[in-house]
Each structure stands twice: as C-alpha cells, then as structure tokens.
Amino acid sequence: MIFISKYLVPKGYWGLTIFPFVFLKSKDLKLNRILINHEKIHLKQQMELLVIPFYLIYGTEFLIRLFQYKNWHLAYRNISFEREAYLNEMHLGYLKQRTFWSFLKYLRSHGFQSGT
C-alpha cells in the first residue's frame, strides 16, 4: 500500500518502505515505475527476513559502512539491501526472477564509489 507523506520520508530521499507500506514524498512519484520497483525490492527483502531482522541487519550494516567509508551517503548506498535495490531498480521484471535472499550477493562485491 502506498501513502504520500512529505513528513515521514527523510530529507534527500523520495521514498521509504516500512513493511507493508511504501511512503512517497509526493503524489506524482506514484507514477515513477523505477522508484516503485526499488521500494518493492525492499518489501521483498523485508518479507524474507521477517521484517524486524531486516531492520536490525540494515542498521548494523549501515554503521559498519559508515565506519568503513566515513561518509553518510556512501555508507547508505553500500548497504547490501540498497545495492541490490539500486542496481536492479530499472529492471522492472527483476522481482519475478529474483532468488531468495539475493541481497547476500551484494555484501562482498565492489561497492558504489563517491559520485554515484
């Protein structure tokens, strides 16, 4: 279910997924198929990890990446869940062929560099 809330979505972001809801910054973003696909990838990740463990892993990995990169944006972009979503958001059929716990593939591969 998609909701519009410019107050729940953090500054600098267009959407936020908190199972089972997707919050978007503005109504027109509902038409952005790439953004919606990105958020649906997060819904799938959250379901696979039974929601609460997803947030624990996400937060822990963010802190590790923040220590590693010493940069908020790079830390966020290099969380395995975000890497999977960003790298596959334009592939609108991705969720149909995605395998269980696919985010694990993005833990070890080379991360996003600054400027991406």
Rank of each mutant, 00 (worst) to 15 (best):
S102T: 10
I64E: 02
I64N: 02
T17Q: 09
E48A: 02
K96R: 13
Y7K: 13
P20C: 05
Q68N: 12
G111D: 12
L29M: 08
L29Y: 08
E89W: 05
I57C: 03
W101Q: 13
N88Q: 10
G93L: 15
R83Y: 04
G111M: 04
R65E: 14
R108T: 13
K96T: 11
G59P: 00
Q113W: 07
I34Q: 12
Y86W: 13
Q113Y: 11
L66S: 02
Y94S: 02
L43T: 03
S5H: 04
Y55S: 04
K25W: 06
E48N: 08
L43W: 11
R108A: 12
D28I: 13
I4T: 05
N78K: 07
L104V: 14
K30V: 09
G111R: 06
I41N: 01
T60Q: 05
S102G: 10
L50H: 11
F62Q: 04
M1Y: 12
N88F: 08
F21W: 11
K96N: 14
R108E: 11
L31K: 15
N88S: 09
F54P: 00
L50Y: 13
M47V: 09
F3G: 01
W72L: 11
G12R: 08
K40D: 08
R108L: 15
L66F: 15
M47K: 15
F67E: 06
S5N: 04
R77W: 13
F67K: 15
P20A: 07
L95F: 06
Y106A: 00
Y76W: 11
K105A: 10
Q46H: 07
R108M: 09
K27S: 12
S114W: 11
Y94N: 04
A75P: 01
L104T: 14
K44V: 15
Y7L: 12
W101P: 00
M1V: 13
Y106D: 01
L50K: 13
P53W: 09
M1N: 11
Q46N: 03
I4L: 03
E39H: 03
N71V: 07
L63S: 10
S26Y: 07
Q97F: 12
G12N: 09
A85I: 06
